[in-house]
Design a protein around this nucleic acid. Structure first.
Lengths: 134, 134
DNA sequence: CCATGTGTATTAATACTATAATACACATGG
DNA sequence: CCATGTGTATTATAGTATTAATACACATGG
């Protein structure tokens, strides 16, 4: 039996303006890319996730379906979704950096529009990094 | 006559998944907060912006209306929108940092889910910062 | 066998986003 | 005066996002 509710691996905010299914989709992508979700691992059930985050089950299912279409997840009839077997177990750092790049570019643009210095931005990120140390 | 098309102050991407009107809204907020758009300055016309970014004029108008409701912009019948008079000309760094915080938190979360190190993230941001040096 | 657990398909309803084509009220400069 | 420039209101259409309530097919453990 799972002692830690796996449904809490994810952060879903219905009020963030970003579609819920896409929040989930991107987080799964990252956890798989980093190997925190390895091939064969079962994902939280649609109903559990939906319940834990007060969201409609079909919204979760939509994310799962898209991830299956991407080849990241594998559907198993009557059984939980699993992480699909992959060529590489873990994406090399270069690929993972590529994945986060657009988000980083957007942040830099915001910082410049706010006329923050590079050091102010770096300090902010350090502070947040510490605050969320696991 | 304006030599530099002011419409290009903004970056609008219809395919980013973020509503266009909100992209514009947030960018204006930041430029005002930093004083790059000072009180009294006229904003690009709805039609110019719409044309320059291949977007519907009403989408721009929606952003302007929301910004006017926020008190950041001022409508002048028959005349271009202007930046509203403000108590402070420029937000102090603290307020500007507050404004970018959620975006920074999201980036840190992504980096952690990708199991990037703090230094890898910092290096990426430095690289992007240099690349977009004005 | 069957209760319980998977994910999914279906259909309906609602809200938000964006486009489109007009039309209007107002201000300004020639 | 009036062409031209503002922003806006209106109406309609389309696509997307989300919720909701069922129902189904399959797998597993007792």
């Amino acid at each position: 039996m799972p002692t830690i509710p796996a449904a809490l691996m994810f952060t879903l905010d219905p009020h963030s303006g970003i579609p819920i299914y896409r929040q989930l989709q991107e987080q799964v992508r990252r956890l798989v890319a980093s190997g925190q979700l390895r091939a064969g691992v079962e994902l939280p059930s649609v109903r559990d996730l939906a319940l834990a985050h007060a969201v409609n089950p079909m919204t979760i299912s939509k994310a799962y379906s898209l991830l299956e279409a991407e080849g990241l997840l594998q559907r198993n009839r009557g059984r939980p979704m699993t992480v699909a077997p992959r060529r590489r177990a873990v994406d090399p750092a270069e690929r993972r950096l590529k994945q986060i790049e657009p988000q980083a570019e957007a942040l830099v643009q915001s910082a410049r529009q706010l006329e923050l210095s590079r050091r102010e931005l770096a300090a902010l990120l350090d502070r947040i990094w510490e605050k969320e140390h696991e």
